[in-house]
Nucleic acid binder design. Structure first.
Lengths: 223, 223
DNA sequence: GAATGTGAACTCCTTCACAGCA
DNA sequence: TGCTGTGAAGGAGTTCACATTC
Protein backbone atom coordinates (compact mmCIF):
# COMPACT_ATOMS: atom_id res chain seq x y z
CA UNK A 1 0.00 0.00 0.00
CA UNK A 2 1.30 3.43 -0.87
CA UNK A 3 -1.13 6.09 0.24
CA UNK A 4 -4.41 5.96 2.08
CA UNK A 5 -7.41 8.08 1.23
CA UNK A 6 -8.39 9.20 4.67
CA UNK A 7 -10.91 11.88 3.73
CA UNK A 8 -13.49 10.51 1.34
CA UNK A 9 -15.62 13.65 1.23
CA UNK A 10 -16.45 14.74 -2.26
CA UNK A 11 -14.28 17.11 -4.21
CA UNK A 12 -15.86 20.03 -6.14
CA UNK A 13 -15.59 19.93 -9.93
CA UNK A 14 -13.66 23.16 -10.02
CA UNK A 15 -11.09 21.72 -7.66
CA UNK A 16 -10.75 18.52 -9.66
CA UNK A 17 -9.91 20.48 -12.79
CA UNK A 18 -7.09 22.24 -10.96
CA UNK A 19 -5.56 19.19 -9.30
CA UNK A 20 -3.75 18.04 -12.47
CA UNK A 21 -2.15 21.46 -12.71
CA UNK A 22 -0.91 21.27 -9.14
CA UNK A 23 0.36 17.79 -9.81
CA UNK A 24 2.38 18.92 -12.80
CA UNK A 25 3.92 21.78 -10.86
CA UNK A 26 4.80 19.42 -8.02
CA UNK A 27 6.44 16.99 -10.44
CA UNK A 28 8.53 19.83 -11.78
CA UNK A 29 9.49 20.93 -8.27
CA UNK A 30 10.42 17.39 -7.29
CA UNK A 31 12.63 17.04 -10.35
CA UNK A 32 14.46 20.17 -9.22
CA UNK A 33 15.00 18.63 -5.84
CA UNK A 34 12.54 20.84 -3.93
CA UNK A 35 11.24 18.92 -0.92
CA UNK A 36 8.90 21.37 0.73
CA UNK A 37 6.84 24.33 -0.48
CA UNK A 38 4.41 26.88 0.93
CA UNK A 39 0.95 27.39 -0.50
CA UNK A 40 1.98 30.86 -1.57
CA UNK A 41 4.92 29.69 -3.64
CA UNK A 42 3.05 26.82 -5.22
CA UNK A 43 0.09 29.08 -5.93
CA UNK A 44 2.35 31.51 -7.71
CA UNK A 45 3.86 28.72 -9.79
CA UNK A 46 0.47 27.61 -11.08
CA UNK A 47 -1.20 31.01 -11.28
CA UNK A 48 -3.88 30.80 -8.62
CA UNK A 49 -4.29 32.45 -5.23
CA UNK A 50 -2.86 30.79 -2.18
CA UNK A 51 -6.24 30.68 -0.45
CA UNK A 52 -7.69 28.89 -3.43
CA UNK A 53 -4.89 26.35 -3.33
CA UNK A 54 -5.29 25.73 0.39
CA UNK A 55 -9.05 25.40 0.06
CA UNK A 56 -8.60 22.95 -2.79
CA UNK A 57 -6.16 20.88 -0.78
CA UNK A 58 -8.43 21.01 2.23
CA UNK A 59 -10.98 19.02 0.22
CA UNK A 60 -8.46 16.20 0.10
CA UNK A 61 -7.71 16.36 3.81
CA UNK A 62 -5.07 18.15 5.82
CA UNK A 63 -1.59 17.45 4.63
CA UNK A 64 0.34 20.64 5.30
CA UNK A 65 2.38 21.62 8.28
CA UNK A 66 1.42 24.95 9.82
CA UNK A 67 4.20 27.45 9.80
CA UNK A 68 6.11 25.37 7.26
CA UNK A 69 4.22 24.28 4.17
CA UNK A 70 3.64 21.08 2.24
CA UNK A 71 5.96 18.18 1.64
CA UNK A 72 6.23 17.88 -2.13
CA UNK A 73 6.52 14.09 -2.35
CA UNK A 74 3.63 13.46 -0.01
CA UNK A 75 1.36 15.96 -1.70
CA UNK A 76 2.04 14.33 -5.06
CA UNK A 77 1.00 10.98 -3.69
CA UNK A 78 -2.16 12.34 -2.15
CA UNK A 79 -3.29 14.12 -5.31
CA UNK A 80 -2.36 11.20 -7.56
CA UNK A 81 -4.29 8.84 -5.38
CA UNK A 82 -7.34 11.07 -5.34
CA UNK A 83 -7.28 11.47 -9.11
CA UNK A 84 -7.14 7.72 -9.44
CA UNK A 85 -3.70 7.74 -11.06
CA UNK A 86 -2.48 4.78 -9.06
CA UNK A 87 -4.37 2.59 -11.49
CA UNK A 88 -3.27 2.23 -15.10
CA UNK A 89 -5.95 3.34 -17.55
CA UNK A 90 -5.35 2.03 -21.04
CA UNK A 91 -6.43 4.35 -23.85
CA UNK A 92 -7.50 3.70 -27.44
CA UNK A 93 -7.49 6.35 -30.17
CA UNK A 94 -9.89 6.20 -33.10
CA UNK A 95 -9.05 8.14 -36.27
CA UNK A 96 -5.51 8.22 -37.60
CA UNK A 97 -5.57 11.54 -39.39
CA UNK A 98 -3.06 14.22 -38.48
CA UNK A 99 -4.58 14.78 -35.08
CA UNK A 100 -4.85 11.09 -34.24
CA UNK A 101 -1.20 10.58 -35.13
CA UNK A 102 -0.19 13.52 -33.02
CA UNK A 103 -2.14 12.16 -30.07
CA UNK A 104 -0.72 8.66 -30.52
CA UNK A 105 2.78 10.07 -30.20
CA UNK A 106 1.96 12.51 -27.46
CA UNK A 107 4.03 11.77 -24.40
CA UNK A 108 1.51 13.28 -22.01
CA UNK A 109 -0.61 10.22 -22.70
CA UNK A 110 2.07 7.62 -22.19
CA UNK A 111 3.18 9.16 -18.92
CA UNK A 112 0.77 9.55 -16.10
CA UNK A 113 -0.81 6.15 -16.21
CA UNK A 114 -2.52 6.53 -19.61
CA UNK A 115 -0.81 4.15 -22.03
CA UNK A 116 -2.09 4.13 -25.60
CA UNK A 117 -2.68 0.43 -26.22
CA UNK A 118 -4.49 0.39 -29.56
CA UNK A 119 -5.19 2.61 -32.57
CA UNK A 120 -8.06 2.36 -35.05
CA UNK A 121 -9.01 3.71 -38.44
CA UNK A 122 -11.67 2.81 -40.95
CA UNK A 123 -9.46 3.41 -43.98
CA UNK A 124 -8.06 0.04 -45.20
CA UNK A 125 -4.99 1.90 -46.50
CA UNK A 126 -4.13 3.03 -43.00
CA UNK A 127 -4.97 -0.19 -41.20
CA UNK A 128 -1.86 -2.27 -40.71
CA UNK A 129 0.53 0.67 -40.68
CA UNK A 130 2.38 1.42 -37.48
CA UNK A 131 1.98 4.79 -35.73
CA UNK A 132 4.23 5.70 -32.83
CA UNK A 133 5.06 2.05 -32.26
CA UNK A 134 1.47 0.79 -32.27
CA UNK A 135 -0.16 -0.93 -35.25
CA UNK A 136 -3.42 0.49 -36.56
CA UNK A 137 -6.35 -1.94 -36.36
CA UNK A 138 -9.63 -1.98 -38.28
CA UNK A 139 -12.80 -0.78 -36.58
CA UNK A 140 -14.15 -4.32 -36.55
CA UNK A 141 -11.55 -5.16 -33.90
CA UNK A 142 -12.46 -2.32 -31.56
CA UNK A 143 -14.75 -4.19 -29.20
CA UNK A 144 -12.61 -7.32 -28.99
CA UNK A 145 -9.29 -5.53 -28.49
CA UNK A 146 -10.71 -3.02 -26.03
CA UNK A 147 -12.06 -5.77 -23.85
CA UNK A 148 -8.88 -7.84 -24.07
CA UNK A 149 -6.67 -4.90 -23.21
CA UNK A 150 -8.92 -3.56 -20.46
CA UNK A 151 -9.41 -0.18 -22.12
CA UNK A 152 -11.25 2.41 -20.02
CA UNK A 153 -10.81 5.59 -22.06
CA UNK A 154 -11.56 6.17 -25.76
CA UNK A 155 -10.28 9.16 -27.71
CA UNK A 156 -12.13 10.28 -30.85
CA UNK A 157 -9.97 12.03 -33.42
CA UNK A 158 -12.19 11.60 -36.46
CA UNK A 159 -14.18 14.15 -38.40
CA UNK A 160 -17.28 15.40 -36.59
CA UNK A 161 -19.49 13.62 -39.13
CA UNK A 162 -18.35 10.17 -37.94
CA UNK A 163 -17.92 10.98 -34.26
CA UNK A 164 -21.37 9.81 -33.16
CA UNK A 165 -20.92 6.49 -34.92
CA UNK A 166 -17.52 6.03 -33.28
CA UNK A 167 -18.93 6.99 -29.89
CA UNK A 168 -21.61 4.31 -30.27
CA UNK A 169 -18.95 1.73 -31.03
CA UNK A 170 -16.85 2.79 -28.05
CA UNK A 171 -19.86 2.48 -25.78
CA UNK A 172 -20.62 -0.95 -27.22
CA UNK A 173 -17.03 -1.90 -26.49
CA UNK A 174 -17.68 -1.19 -22.82
CA UNK A 175 -15.80 2.09 -22.65
CA UNK A 176 -17.31 4.62 -20.26
CA UNK A 177 -14.99 7.62 -20.64
CA UNK A 178 -14.71 9.42 -23.96
CA UNK A 179 -12.51 12.34 -24.94
CA UNK A 180 -13.48 13.79 -28.29
CA UNK A 181 -11.75 16.36 -30.46
CA UNK A 182 -14.59 16.43 -32.97
CA UNK A 183 -16.81 19.48 -32.57
CA UNK A 184 -20.11 17.69 -32.35
CA UNK A 185 -22.48 16.98 -29.48
CA UNK A 186 -22.44 13.26 -28.70
CA UNK A 187 -25.43 11.42 -27.40
CA UNK A 188 -24.42 8.60 -25.10
CA UNK A 189 -26.00 6.66 -22.22
CA UNK A 190 -25.98 8.57 -18.96
CA UNK A 191 -23.35 6.28 -17.43
CA UNK A 192 -20.78 7.43 -20.00
CA UNK A 193 -18.69 10.54 -19.38
CA UNK A 194 -17.78 12.69 -22.37
CA UNK A 195 -15.30 15.54 -22.54
CA UNK A 196 -15.14 17.69 -25.65
CA UNK A 197 -12.00 19.55 -26.62
CA UNK A 198 -12.81 21.85 -29.50
CA UNK A 199 -10.11 23.95 -31.04
CA UNK A 200 -12.61 26.16 -32.79
CA UNK A 201 -14.27 27.03 -29.49
CA UNK A 202 -10.93 27.92 -27.95
CA UNK A 203 -10.21 30.35 -30.77
CA UNK A 204 -13.67 31.86 -30.50
CA UNK A 205 -13.20 32.54 -26.82
CA UNK A 206 -9.79 34.09 -27.48
CA UNK A 207 -11.28 36.27 -30.18
CA UNK A 208 -13.98 37.46 -27.82
CA UNK A 209 -11.48 38.29 -25.12
CA UNK A 210 -9.40 40.24 -27.62
CA UNK A 211 -12.46 42.22 -28.58
CA UNK A 212 -13.56 42.96 -25.03
CA UNK A 213 -10.10 43.12 -23.55
CA UNK A 214 -10.75 42.88 -19.87
CA UNK A 215 -8.22 43.77 -17.22
CA UNK A 216 -6.93 40.41 -16.11
CA UNK A 217 -7.67 39.44 -12.56
CA UNK A 218 -4.47 39.98 -10.60
CA UNK A 219 -2.41 36.88 -9.96
CA UNK A 220 -0.69 36.26 -6.69
CA UNK A 221 2.84 37.50 -6.29
CA UNK A 222 5.08 36.94 -3.31
CA UNK A 223 5.25 40.21 -1.46
CA UNK B 1 -23.03 47.15 -42.37
CA UNK B 2 -24.36 43.73 -41.57
CA UNK B 3 -25.47 43.50 -37.96
CA UNK B 4 -25.53 46.07 -35.21
CA UNK B 5 -24.57 45.36 -31.62
CA UNK B 6 -27.47 47.03 -29.90
CA UNK B 7 -26.87 45.74 -26.38
CA UNK B 8 -23.29 46.35 -25.29
CA UNK B 9 -23.77 45.05 -21.78
CA UNK B 10 -21.14 42.59 -20.79
CA UNK B 11 -21.48 38.89 -21.33
CA UNK B 12 -20.55 36.41 -18.53
CA UNK B 13 -17.56 34.16 -19.18
CA UNK B 14 -19.68 31.05 -18.88
CA UNK B 15 -21.99 32.32 -21.58
CA UNK B 16 -19.12 33.23 -23.89
CA UNK B 17 -17.78 29.70 -23.73
CA UNK B 18 -21.16 28.34 -24.81
CA UNK B 19 -21.78 30.76 -27.68
CA UNK B 20 -19.44 28.93 -30.08
CA UNK B 21 -21.38 25.74 -29.42
CA UNK B 22 -24.67 27.42 -30.22
CA UNK B 23 -23.12 28.89 -33.33
CA UNK B 24 -22.00 25.50 -34.56
CA UNK B 25 -25.44 24.00 -34.00
CA UNK B 26 -27.05 26.91 -35.83
CA UNK B 27 -24.70 26.48 -38.79
CA UNK B 28 -25.68 22.84 -38.95
CA UNK B 29 -29.36 23.72 -38.78
CA UNK B 30 -28.98 26.35 -41.49
CA UNK B 31 -27.25 23.84 -43.75
CA UNK B 32 -30.25 21.58 -43.31
CA UNK B 33 -32.53 24.39 -44.35
CA UNK B 34 -34.06 25.05 -40.92
CA UNK B 35 -35.12 28.69 -40.72
CA UNK B 36 -36.57 28.98 -37.26
CA UNK B 37 -36.08 27.11 -33.99
CA UNK B 38 -37.35 27.20 -30.42
CA UNK B 39 -35.04 27.48 -27.43
CA UNK B 40 -36.13 24.02 -26.37
CA UNK B 41 -35.11 22.35 -29.61
CA UNK B 42 -31.82 24.21 -29.89
CA UNK B 43 -31.06 23.49 -26.25
CA UNK B 44 -31.60 19.82 -26.83
CA UNK B 45 -29.30 19.86 -29.84
CA UNK B 46 -26.42 21.32 -27.84
CA UNK B 47 -27.07 19.59 -24.54
CA UNK B 48 -28.07 22.43 -22.25
CA UNK B 49 -31.38 23.44 -20.69
CA UNK B 50 -33.68 25.78 -22.53
CA UNK B 51 -33.67 28.31 -19.69
CA UNK B 52 -29.90 28.41 -19.82
CA UNK B 53 -29.97 29.03 -23.54
CA UNK B 54 -32.54 31.79 -23.24
CA UNK B 55 -30.62 33.43 -20.41
CA UNK B 56 -27.44 33.27 -22.46
CA UNK B 57 -29.12 34.83 -25.46
CA UNK B 58 -30.70 37.48 -23.28
CA UNK B 59 -27.20 38.75 -22.54
CA UNK B 60 -26.87 39.57 -26.23
CA UNK B 61 -30.24 41.29 -26.41
CA UNK B 62 -33.71 40.14 -27.36
CA UNK B 63 -33.82 38.43 -30.70
CA UNK B 64 -36.50 35.79 -30.32
CA UNK B 65 -40.17 36.01 -31.11
CA UNK B 66 -42.47 35.01 -28.29
CA UNK B 67 -44.67 32.11 -29.13
CA UNK B 68 -42.48 31.26 -32.11
CA UNK B 69 -38.75 30.98 -31.46
CA UNK B 70 -35.56 32.29 -33.02
CA UNK B 71 -34.74 32.95 -36.64
CA UNK B 72 -31.68 30.82 -37.36
CA UNK B 73 -29.96 33.18 -39.82
CA UNK B 74 -30.40 36.22 -37.63
CA UNK B 75 -29.23 34.47 -34.49
CA UNK B 76 -26.09 33.33 -36.28
CA UNK B 77 -25.31 36.88 -37.26
CA UNK B 78 -25.89 38.21 -33.78
CA UNK B 79 -23.67 35.61 -32.11
CA UNK B 80 -20.96 35.90 -34.75
CA UNK B 81 -20.92 39.64 -34.38
CA UNK B 82 -20.73 39.43 -30.60
CA UNK B 83 -17.87 36.93 -30.74
CA UNK B 84 -16.02 39.26 -33.08
CA UNK B 85 -16.10 36.82 -35.98
CA UNK B 86 -16.90 39.49 -38.53
CA UNK B 87 -13.23 40.41 -38.46
CA UNK B 88 -10.60 38.06 -39.86
CA UNK B 89 -8.05 37.03 -37.25
CA UNK B 90 -4.88 35.64 -38.78
CA UNK B 91 -3.20 32.87 -36.79
CA UNK B 92 0.41 31.68 -36.59
CA UNK B 93 1.45 28.29 -35.29
CA UNK B 94 4.84 27.72 -33.67
CA UNK B 95 6.21 24.17 -33.49
CA UNK B 96 5.86 21.80 -36.42
CA UNK B 97 5.87 18.50 -34.58
CA UNK B 98 2.98 16.10 -34.99
CA UNK B 99 0.58 18.36 -33.15
CA UNK B 100 1.64 21.50 -35.02
CA UNK B 101 1.13 19.74 -38.33
CA UNK B 102 -2.26 18.52 -37.27
CA UNK B 103 -3.28 22.02 -36.24
CA UNK B 104 -1.95 23.54 -39.47
CA UNK B 105 -4.22 21.26 -41.44
CA UNK B 106 -7.18 21.56 -39.12
CA UNK B 107 -10.13 22.93 -41.01
CA UNK B 108 -11.74 24.40 -37.91
CA UNK B 109 -8.99 26.99 -38.03
CA UNK B 110 -9.31 27.89 -41.70
CA UNK B 111 -13.07 28.30 -41.45
CA UNK B 112 -14.58 30.71 -39.05
CA UNK B 113 -12.37 33.68 -39.70
CA UNK B 114 -9.14 32.14 -38.37
CA UNK B 115 -6.80 31.63 -41.32
CA UNK B 116 -3.42 30.12 -40.58
CA UNK B 117 -1.07 32.57 -42.29
CA UNK B 118 2.36 31.42 -41.13
CA UNK B 119 4.10 28.45 -39.52
CA UNK B 120 7.35 28.42 -37.55
CA UNK B 121 9.88 25.94 -36.28
CA UNK B 122 13.35 26.26 -34.86
CA UNK B 123 14.69 23.13 -36.57
CA UNK B 124 16.58 24.12 -39.76
CA UNK B 125 15.61 20.76 -41.27
CA UNK B 126 11.95 21.62 -41.01
CA UNK B 127 12.22 25.26 -42.05
CA UNK B 128 11.50 25.63 -45.74
CA UNK B 129 9.25 22.59 -45.97
CA UNK B 130 5.59 23.12 -46.77
CA UNK B 131 2.89 21.99 -44.33
CA UNK B 132 -0.76 22.08 -45.39
CA UNK B 133 0.05 24.56 -48.11
CA UNK B 134 2.01 26.98 -45.96
CA UNK B 135 5.83 27.15 -45.89
CA UNK B 136 7.55 26.81 -42.52
CA UNK B 137 9.60 29.88 -41.54
CA UNK B 138 12.47 30.21 -39.08
CA UNK B 139 11.83 31.75 -35.67
CA UNK B 140 13.88 34.78 -36.64
CA UNK B 141 11.08 35.80 -39.01
CA UNK B 142 8.31 35.58 -36.42
CA UNK B 143 8.12 39.24 -35.45
CA UNK B 144 8.49 40.58 -38.98
CA UNK B 145 5.97 38.21 -40.59
CA UNK B 146 3.44 38.54 -37.78
CA UNK B 147 3.44 42.30 -38.11
CA UNK B 148 3.25 42.20 -41.90
CA UNK B 149 0.40 39.72 -41.91
CA UNK B 150 -1.52 41.38 -39.09
CA UNK B 151 -1.47 38.30 -36.88
CA UNK B 152 -3.56 38.53 -33.70
CA UNK B 153 -3.46 34.95 -32.38
CA UNK B 154 -0.44 32.74 -31.74
CA UNK B 155 -0.66 28.98 -31.19
CA UNK B 156 2.12 27.20 -29.30
CA UNK B 157 2.58 23.54 -30.24
CA UNK B 158 6.11 23.05 -28.95
CA UNK B 159 7.35 21.02 -26.00
CA UNK B 160 6.58 22.58 -22.62
CA UNK B 161 10.28 23.30 -22.10
CA UNK B 162 10.37 25.84 -24.93
CA UNK B 163 6.88 27.25 -24.50
CA UNK B 164 7.84 30.19 -22.29
CA UNK B 165 10.53 31.25 -24.74
CA UNK B 166 8.06 31.05 -27.63
CA UNK B 167 5.47 32.98 -25.64
CA UNK B 168 7.99 35.75 -25.07
CA UNK B 169 8.68 35.92 -28.78
CA UNK B 170 4.98 36.02 -29.61
CA UNK B 171 4.47 38.86 -27.18
CA UNK B 172 7.43 40.72 -28.67
CA UNK B 173 5.84 40.24 -32.08
CA UNK B 174 2.84 42.18 -30.82
CA UNK B 175 0.51 39.19 -30.43
CA UNK B 176 -1.94 39.51 -27.54
CA UNK B 177 -3.86 36.22 -27.70
CA UNK B 178 -2.07 32.92 -27.14
CA UNK B 179 -3.41 29.38 -27.31
CA UNK B 180 -0.95 26.85 -25.95
CA UNK B 181 -0.98 23.07 -26.03
CA UNK B 182 2.14 22.81 -23.90
CA UNK B 183 1.36 21.91 -20.31
CA UNK B 184 3.27 24.69 -18.65
CA UNK B 185 2.19 27.89 -16.94
CA UNK B 186 3.17 30.89 -19.05
CA UNK B 187 4.10 34.20 -17.59
CA UNK B 188 3.07 37.05 -19.87
CA UNK B 189 2.19 40.73 -19.49
CA UNK B 190 -1.27 41.33 -18.12
CA UNK B 191 -2.56 42.65 -21.46
CA UNK B 192 -1.99 39.23 -23.07
CA UNK B 193 -4.69 36.55 -22.90
CA UNK B 194 -3.55 32.93 -22.62
CA UNK B 195 -5.64 29.79 -23.00
CA UNK B 196 -4.13 26.44 -22.12
CA UNK B 197 -5.38 23.22 -23.65
CA UNK B 198 -3.75 20.33 -21.89
CA UNK B 199 -4.49 16.82 -22.97
CA UNK B 200 -3.05 15.38 -19.78
CA UNK B 201 -5.45 17.43 -17.69
CA UNK B 202 -8.40 16.25 -19.75
CA UNK B 203 -7.46 12.64 -19.14
CA UNK B 204 -6.97 13.27 -15.44
CA UNK B 205 -10.42 14.72 -15.13
CA UNK B 206 -11.91 11.79 -17.03
CA UNK B 207 -10.07 9.37 -14.78
CA UNK B 208 -11.45 11.11 -11.70
CA UNK B 209 -14.98 11.03 -13.03
CA UNK B 210 -14.63 7.33 -13.79
CA UNK B 211 -13.50 6.74 -10.23
CA UNK B 212 -16.25 8.78 -8.62
CA UNK B 213 -18.89 8.03 -11.21
CA UNK B 214 -21.50 10.63 -10.53
CA UNK B 215 -25.03 10.47 -11.81
CA UNK B 216 -24.98 12.83 -14.75
CA UNK B 217 -27.16 15.90 -14.50
CA UNK B 218 -30.24 15.24 -16.58
CA UNK B 219 -30.25 16.80 -20.02
CA UNK B 220 -33.30 18.40 -21.51
CA UNK B 221 -35.56 16.29 -23.65
CA UNK B 222 -38.57 17.43 -25.58
CA UNK B 223 -41.63 16.22 -23.75
C1' DG C 1 -51.67 28.73 -26.92
C1' DA C 2 -46.89 28.83 -27.20
C1' DA C 3 -42.65 30.42 -26.52
C1' DT C 4 -39.55 34.27 -24.99
C1' DG C 5 -37.34 37.22 -21.42
C1' DT C 6 -36.18 38.13 -16.71
C1' DG C 7 -36.33 39.11 -11.58
C1' DA C 8 -35.69 36.13 -7.67
C1' DA C 9 -34.15 31.96 -5.39
C1' DC C 10 -30.75 28.80 -5.17
C1' DT C 11 -26.39 26.45 -5.77
C1' DC C 12 -21.63 26.47 -6.50
C1' DC C 13 -17.19 28.58 -6.23
C1' DT C 14 -13.95 32.08 -4.58
C1' DT C 15 -12.14 35.21 -1.35
C1' DC C 16 -11.78 37.04 3.21
C1' DA C 17 -10.69 37.01 7.92
C1' DC C 18 -8.88 34.80 11.42
C1' DA C 19 -8.42 30.81 14.63
C1' DG C 20 -5.20 27.03 15.32
C1' DC C 21 -0.89 24.93 15.38
C1' DA C 22 4.24 24.02 14.71
C1' DT D 1 6.21 34.30 14.16
C1' DG D 2 4.73 31.97 9.94
C1' DC D 3 1.77 29.34 7.49
C1' DT D 4 -2.10 26.13 7.30
C1' DG D 5 -7.05 25.17 7.60
C1' DT D 6 -11.76 26.75 7.60
C1' DG D 7 -16.24 29.14 8.79
C1' DA D 8 -18.39 33.04 6.91
C1' DA D 9 -19.09 36.51 3.42
C1' DG D 10 -19.28 37.61 -1.20
C1' DG D 11 -19.74 36.76 -6.16
C1' DA D 12 -20.86 34.14 -10.29
C1' DG D 13 -23.72 31.09 -12.69
C1' DT D 14 -27.88 28.27 -12.98
C1' DT D 15 -32.59 27.24 -12.40
C1' DC D 16 -37.24 28.52 -11.24
C1' DA D 17 -41.48 30.85 -11.76
C1' DC D 18 -44.10 33.68 -14.18
C1' DA D 19 -45.18 38.01 -16.62
C1' DT D 20 -45.10 39.24 -21.39
C1' DT D 21 -45.77 39.16 -26.21
C1' DC D 22 -46.97 37.27 -30.75
Amino acid sequence: MTTELPAPRDVPDATVSRLPVYLRALAELASRGVRSISSQELAKAVGVRSTQLRKDLSHLGSYGVRGVGYEVAHLREVISARLGLTVTRPVVIVGMGNLGRALAGYSGFANRAFPVVALFDRDPEVVGTVVAGTPVSPMTQLARLSKELGVTIGVIATHPASSQEVADQLVDAGIRSILTFASAVLSVPEYVTVRVVDLGTELHVLAFRALNRRTEEPRESIS
